[in-house]
Amino acid sequence: MVIQLGTFRSYEERLEEIQAQAAYWVAREQSGRMREAERIALREWLARSPAHELEYQLLDHLYASDELEAALALAPRHAPAPAVRTTLADRLRPLLAGIGAIGRPALAFAMALVLGLVALQQIAPELLATLFPQPAGLRHDRLVTRPGERLVSHLPDGTKLYLDGDTELDVAFEARRRHVTLRRGNALFDVAHDTHRPFDVTAPRATVRVLGTQFLISDRSSRTTVDVFRGTVEIDPSGIGDANAVRASRGSRVSVGSELILEKLGARSAIDWSEGWVDEDALPLGELVAMIRERTGRHVALDPRVAHLSVSGRFRITEPDAALKRLALVYPVRVQFEDDVIRVMPK
C-alpha cells in the first residue's frame, strides 16, 4: 500500500517538461562546450529519475539517427536575412523629395506612387507581393536539369517536386488546378492535399491524377513507372488503346509500357530514391546505366549486347564505380574504368 499526495504528478503528466529538459541537455552536449560542472549536473539529473534517463536516451537516439539526417537533407531551407538593412522610408525619401520639387501636388503624388511602386519592386518585392497579391498564385514554370544535377522546387501550396538529373517538366499552378507535364526523366512528387485544386501529371504514356500523396514517376525507354509511397493515385494510360484508368495505392507500382502492369512495391521508399538506392528485380542493365547517367552525369558506355541483360538487387547509383564492380562479380559482364568513361562489356 502506497500513500500518494494528490499534487504528486505522474510521469505522463510531467512528460513534456522532462522532454524539454532532455532537449536542453542533448543540445548542450552537442554544443561541444559542456563544462565539468555541467557534466556533473547532467549526471545528477539523469540519476534523479528513470524517466529522465529514458527521455534523454530517446532524444539522443533521435538526434543521432540516420533518419533525422535524411529528413533534414530533404527539408526546405531558410535564407538568412541580410545583417544590415536600411529602412524602406530612408531609401524612398530622396526620391519623393525630388518629385515634390516639381510643384503640382496631385501629379507629384501620382508620380510618387508609380515611382514608389517601381522602387518597391526593386527594394522589397516580397512587401509588394503582400500589398498586391497575384491572383491566386498563378505560376507557370519550365524546370530542366542536366545529367548529374538535382533540383527541388516548391510550389506555393507546399507541394514539392524533386527532379532527378536529365529531367524536364512544365508546371502550371493555377487557381483551379495544378498540372505538371513530365517531358522526360523522373521526378518525385510530394503533393499537398487540396481537394479544390486537383493535381495531375501527364507523362508520355500515362496521366496520373492525385489529391495528396507522394509518388515517383519515371519515364524509361520502354515504359513509364509510377511508384506510390503514400496516398492513392489514379493512372490513365494514354499509350494503351482503350485501357481503363487504374487506381494505385500506397506500396504499389504501375508500369505502363506495351501493357499495364500492377505490382507491389515492397519496401522501397521515397528516401531510397533520394539517397540513390535502386532496388529492382529484373531491371534491364540499359535502364540501370541510364539511371546512373541521369543521377551522376557519369558517362557509361554500354555494349548493346548486354543492354537487355536483366539484373536484380539493391544498387547505389550514386556510387557507380563500386556498384558496377559488384555487378560484374555476379553477372556475365566486364567493367573497365577509363579517365572519363566506364565501359561495360560482355565477359
Partner: peptide
Amino acid sequence: PVDERPCQERAAVDADRLDQLRQA
C-alpha cells in the same frame, strides 16, 4: 554499396517513421 539484406526485411515502418520525421 550493394546492400545484402533482402529488401522485404526493411520494414515499411521505416518509411513511415521517415515521413513522420519529415512532417515534424
